[in-house]
Structures are given as C-alpha cells and as structure tokens.
Nucleic acid binder design. Structure first.
Lengths: 297, 297
DNA sequence: GTCGACATATCAGATATTTCGAAGATATTG
DNA sequence: CAATATCTTCGAAATATCTGATATGTCGAC
C-alpha cells in the first residue's frame, strides 16, 4: 500500500475547504499560511493532480479536489474514531454513547435502559436518536451511532434479536371503517392511511399496504393526533397505541384476515466486538428490558 | 479532530503484526528496527495504551492492539484508495474495475457489458464476482466492488433501476408435482425446495416459501443439475431456466395462485458520483443492455 | 547457572520533513 | 493607482523521524 499522503496533509486540504481559504485554514490549525500551502502542494505533486485552482485571488476546489475533500474528511473521522476507541478500550467508560433506535421500539424501554446506564456511569453523555425504517440502518452504516436498535441488520453486522413488535390496524372509534362490521384488506385500500416517513436519506416506502391515499408524518406524535381526529387509519405498533386503546380514543379495526402484522427488532453494535464498555452496558440493559418488560419504571 | 497518530505510525504497527515482529517489520518497510520501535511507542504513549506486551522475547498483541490493528488496516486501505482514485480521476481509465452482480442478473448481459468495456478500454482489467442475496450488498458496504448489481440498495447509496426479474416455479417433467394438475402453494410446502445459498457472510434465509425440506446450493449450476434429476422444485429466474424450458427438460409448475414472483435489480456505484470512467462506462453498458435485451450477443 | 542466539528498548547523533517569517506575485476594491 | 486580500516562494529554524550502536531481557542448550 502506497500512502504517500499523510493525515496532516489531508487535514490541511480539508481545513482550506472548511475555513474557506489558506490563511483561515492556517489560523484554524495554528500554523502559518506557508505550511498549509506547502502541504496542499505536496498532495498535488505527489498525486499529479490539482486540488485547487486560483480563481482570482481565491482558491477554488476542482472537481478532483472536491472528491478528495469528501473522502479525506471521512478518512480523518475514521482515524479520529480509532484513536478514541483505543483510549476508551483500556480506560473505563467512554464519554459518549450514541443510541439510534427505531421508533417501533417502545420509548419507555429505551429510556429505562438509558437511566440504568446513567446510574452506572453518570459521566457518560448520551445521544438518543429515534429513527424510522432505514434510518437506523443508515446510522449504523455511517457510523453515526454506537448502539442501534433496527428492524434490519445490514450484511456484515451481528444482530441480537431483541423483540417482536406486533402491529395492529387502528382508527378512531367514529371512523367510517368502524361502521362496517368485519373488514377485509380490500376495505382498507379505499381509506386514507397514515404512515411515518422514513428518516433515512433514501426514503424507502415500506409498502405496508397499498392504500390509495396516504398521508405521511415525520413523527409518531403528529400521526397520533391525526388518528385521534379520525383523519385515517394506521398500522401501529401495539405498545404505541396501548393507552389510547384503553382510553377508548382508538379502536382496533375488526379485520377478517391479516389483522396482525409483525416486525422484529435487533440490537446491533456499530463496533462489533470492540464496542466500548458503556455501549455494551447499554446494549445489555436494552436486552434485559426486553426479557422482563414488567420491570419498567 | 484529534488525529495524533500518523498513517506511517499505523503502518508500522500493522507491519509488526503482519510480519510477526519488529525486526521483520523493519525489513519489510525498509527501515531500521528502532524506527519501528519508536513509531509503535509513539502510538502507545500518545493514546495512553499498550498495543503489545512482551511475551517472553516476542511481542504479542494486546486486546486493544488487536482492535487497533484491524481498524488501522482498514484506514490504510481507505487512504490508499483515495490516492488511487485521485490519480485516476484526472487520467483516463482506471486499471481495474470490480463488478459484483447478483446471480439473478442474466450472465449474458453482464458479459456483454464487460465485452463492450473491453473494446473501449482494453487495458482495464476486470474482476467479476457473482453474488447471491446479501452478497452484493455486502460487496458494496465493504467496498469490494466498484459497480454492483443488487436486489437491495443499502441506505445512503443511489440505485438505478435496471430490470425486473420474473421468477417461476419449475421442476423436471417427471417430478411428482407435475402429476397433480393445478397446484396451490400448500402443495409445494410438502416437497423439497432447492435454494441457492446467500453468498454474504451473514447468511440470510430468503424465506421464499416455507418448504419443509430444502436443499441449499452454493451455485446455480449445481442446483440446475439437481432440478434436472428431479430432486426437487425451485423458484428460478425466468432467464436462467429459459433454455431448459424450451428443451422440455424443465416444466413450470401449474400454480393456481402466486405462480409468479418478482424481484428488482438495481445498479449502484460504490463511489457514487465519483465513480471512475471505466466504472461509469460499465454501468452505462449494463443499463443499455437492459433497455435493449435483444442486442445480446 | 552460564552462555549465545534472539527480540525489543533506549540513546545520541544524523537526516528528513515541516514550519516559520519575510518577500514576491496576482487579483480585487475603491 | 494605491491599498488590501490572498496565495507562492524561499532560506533558515524547528521538529520529527531515522539510523546504528548498545542495553536489557528471554529462551534454550550444555
């Protein structure tokens, strides 16, 4: 493997782009302009390409330069991550754990696990991202989370089965669908379905059911509002609508067939066997909370 | 971003592991032994960890060191790739294009596109990997291919729809299923199904159909043999069994319902908009061959 | 136990690379 | 056209890395 270009050199290039100029880059990196200039030139001569062109008195990225910038940025992030994880692997708890959980996962259980973690390691900060459909997978692939609860485990990752989620079709009690007695899936097709938008960049249509009309919500809370107002029906995870069912503000649709759908959720560590101590602890807490759902608090 | 450790230092660590010792690593990198020692120590002091322990007179990786080794190896590969792609982005054709195509994709069309590429750029070498199910996705995620034909586009990648594949259930003419007249899916369940093994590390069961018995083949050719001998039935892409159907050595099963299944194939570039010239050309050829399947040769 | 072969650690000086500061080049601004 | 802003260039200085010699420690043989 060649590797003629050092990380410092890539960093110089990145700084020039991010800071908008050689001088600013030098400032940001605590070096002199000429050092930056030297580093960038070195990249250009070593690779035999031009990363910047002098557009007037301003440096402008070339097409090639843009490619290098993006890739190098990932490279540096990767390098930084390795160093951090090294430090954390020997010392105790990492300072930050990022959890990405599919919205299907009961929020209660996630919070419960986070509380358990906080009790064990109060100094570990937490970032909690709620994702929809491909969002959790994406967080994993982009290394934007350390612990992920997802419905699909991408190839190359190990997933622990966490729980099975039961979906039921629900609507407000005064919704027209509740006036018809037993329903077939065909009956649903004619009514408005309320779905939640994929939080991933690539919007996957989950295609639950080919309803003619569908309204899309970016967040479960707003969908619930719409459901309560009778604006449509939805396939919702049992746990999400439990309270509304008890309160009678939502009622399950009386489907003849296919009245239940299931989805599975898996626990995945972004760093596999090298997950940090806090990540591992959080993962175990999540698993525990799925084994004894009664001990919720 | 911290990045206290340089690529050269990581390279030293990697060489020590790969070559089995400091002295050998020095030899391999064309440096002195003390330089290696210095580099590794620098990593250890900067990160405050120990990568090696002296086990007797031999250096042995610690748990932490093992983690670093693996991650650093990826880091260096990444760095090398960036440099290469930079060089290629300005100069013409890259020297190597790696195509990973799902086995569902008609081999004829893949080869046809490769021939077109070879005519245009004879010096570009080609690596062609045939994958099954998650295998193509995995090739993409691990950056083991430049151009991928896959049934599933992982989040974060852009996929062009290439073609729709029609599956039909087939068996040899003398197979018991052909004696029964019209069949339901239930009838299939009782017979042996011949499936192709997922080529990804994580073996996904595609769960086409819950047959009680299934035999798994790692390669389509061997499954065909088994089909011809009447050892079971299979869901096969239309194009794959075309000839056998014409020759009468296989017959489609007369299913009452669900006699057809469909799968979609997408074209994905591993490097997105920065795909090399040859990769792009190959991708376009693949798309063209799907638009005019008649021009095959 | 003592010795030699082997493997890594350490040290001082040599070498290479990176950085700095100042001066130079070029384009924009008023 | 001067004043300003920005990147380049260049020699000198600072820093990091490397080398070769030597130290330390282990293993196995006798």
């Amino acid at each position: 493997m060649s590797t003629k270009i050092s990380l410092d050199q890539w960093q110089a290039l990145i700084a020039v782009v991010d800071e908008g100029g050689y001088a600013a880059a030098a400032e940001a990196l605590g070096k002199s302009q000429s050092a930056i200039s030297y580093a960038v030139q070195k990249i250009e001569t070593e690779l035999g390409i031009r990363a910047f062109t002098l557009e007037g008195r301003r440096a402008k990225l070339t097409e090639t330069g843009d490619m290098l910038y993006r890739q190098a940025k990932l490279l540096l992030e990767e390098a930084g991550r390795i160093e951090n994880s090294a430090i954390q692997s020997s010392h105790g708890w990492e300072p930050l754990v990022r959890l990405a959980a599919d919205a299907l996962f009961p929020r209660q259980q996630a919070l419960c696990a986070l509380v358990t973690l906080a009790e064990e390691s109060p100094l570990t900060r937490v970032e909690f991202q709620e994702t929809v459909l491909s969002g959790s997978e994406e967080a994993l692939l982009r290394h934007e989370a350390d612990v992920v609860v997802t419905g699909r485990v991408p190839p190359g990752f190990m997933g622990d089965h966490l729980m099975r989620v039961r979906f039921i079709a629900v609507a407000a009690p005064d919704h027209p669908l509740h006036q018809k007695g037993e329903l077939s899936l065909e009956d649903l097709r004619a009514h408005r379905q309320l779905v939640i938008r994929d939080s991933g960049k690539r919007r996957l249509d989950s295609g639950w059911l080919g309803a003619e009309q569908r309204w899309t919500f970016s967040y479960g809370g707003s969908r619930r509002e719409a459901l309560l107002r009778g604006l449509g029906f939805a396939w919702a995870p049992e746990t999400e609508v439990e309270e509304d069912l008890e309160a009678g503000s939502l009622k399950p649709l009386p489907l003849k067939e296919g009245g239940e759908r299931y989805g599975d959720l898996y626990l995945v560590y972004a760093d596999g066997q090298y997950a940090g101590r806090a990540a591992r602890f959080l993962g175990e807490s999540l698993k525990a909370s799925c084994r004894n759902p009664d001990t919720d608090h």
